[in-house]
């Protein structure tokens, strides 16, 4: 059972960092950005590129995150703003197209083989019977730290108040003299930056490949939707809950129900997120905490 805990902490942290960004963009622009998870892939590759150029891991990671954040703003201004003018449907298809373009470009530049960050191979530390590597401990701490920081910023700074105002009512925010364009820029930078951190952490823990982000797409959407779109706390809680469910489903001996001992094929793990997503959308589209996503 401790294994489940370790598993949940690691995978939940990765999903949470991405789900929070997705929910922020959704809150401010009313738009589901399918390309969001690609920022994680870009983060991983830019760290690979910078360490390859001879920079240290920490510096490369920081620069990589900054570069992805800037790229996100550029993409928003050059692309998404235009797409959004043609309606949310076109924007959604467009973000899917952008995701494909980003993946294809990375394949063109880096090939389809995975890349590694120069981190030493470490033996896991025994934690009550489950093994956790030092890099995984760092991963969880960094994620939790950043999530706490984000919560504080949104709660207590004027920037946070502005973001929440725009999210609550864009037109009203305009009237009240807020610079909505600037707020949206910052939201893009924040969410893409967090996604990049998540991608880099995952790259350190395993490897970075073209599909890194895409493999996370549905779990991240599941967490954001289950958490209630626009709700930061909801997204974080849902991310860890989802990771826990994924791990539990595989640990449980279903023999009690179907007879004998029967463990689910590990291959079905991603199905947990998909199923949760579909059930949630069918029966409680407003999420655990947050606004309805019903039409109308």
């Amino acid at each position: 059972m401790v294994e489940v805990l370790v598993d949940t902490a690691v995978r939940g942290s990765i999903i949470a960092l991405l789900a929070v960004g997705l929910t922020l963009i959704q809150g401010t622009l009313r738009f589901a950005n399918v390309a969001h998870v690609e920022f994680a892939t870009l983060g991983g590759y830019s760290a690979v590129a910078l360490t390859g150029a001879g920079l240290g891991l920490l510096l490369s990671s920081a620069l990589g995150v900054a570069l992805v954040a800037v790229l996100a703003v550029v993409l928003y201004r050059l692309l998404f703003r235009r797409l959004l003018r043609s309606g949310p449907m076109i924007a959604l298809i467009g973000s899917l197209a952008l995701a494909i373009v980003i993946r294809a470009t990375l394949q063109l530049l880096y090939g389809s083989r995975p890349r590694y960050l120069p981190t030493p191979l470490e033996r896991g530390i025994d934690f009550h019977g489950a093994l956790i590597t030092p890099s995984q401990i760092r991963l969880v701490c960094i994620s939790l730290g950043l999530l706490a920081l984000l919560a504080l910023v949104l709660k207590f700074t004027s920037l946070g108040r502005a973001v929440r105002a725009v999210a609550a009512n864009p037109e009203l925010a305009d009237v009240s003299g807020l610079n909505r364009g600037r707020v949206v820029d910052i939201v893009w930078m924040l969410s893409a930056g967090l996604a990049a951190v998540s991608g880099i952490l995952l790259s350190i823990d395993s490897a970075v490949g073209i599909e890194l982000g895409f493999n996370l797409l549905l779990p991240v959407f599941a967490a954001a939707i289950v958490g209630g779109l626009g709700s930061i706390a909801g997204a974080v809680i849902a991310a860890y809950a989802l990771a826990c469910a994924e791990s539990l489903v595989l640990q449980i001996d279903w023999g009690a129900i179907v007879g004998g001992t029967h463990h689910l094929e590990v291959g079905y793990r991603p199905a947990v997120g998909f199923a949760l997503l579909v059930v949630m959308l069918a029966f409680r589209p407003q999420g655990l905490m947050g606004r309805a996503v019903r039409r109308g």
Partner: peptide, 17 residues
Amino acid sequence: TLASDYWAIATLALAEL
């Protein structure tokens, strides 16, 4: 009952299932 973008994500999830 779903807004179109969430329905889109749901169909993607169903196809993956």
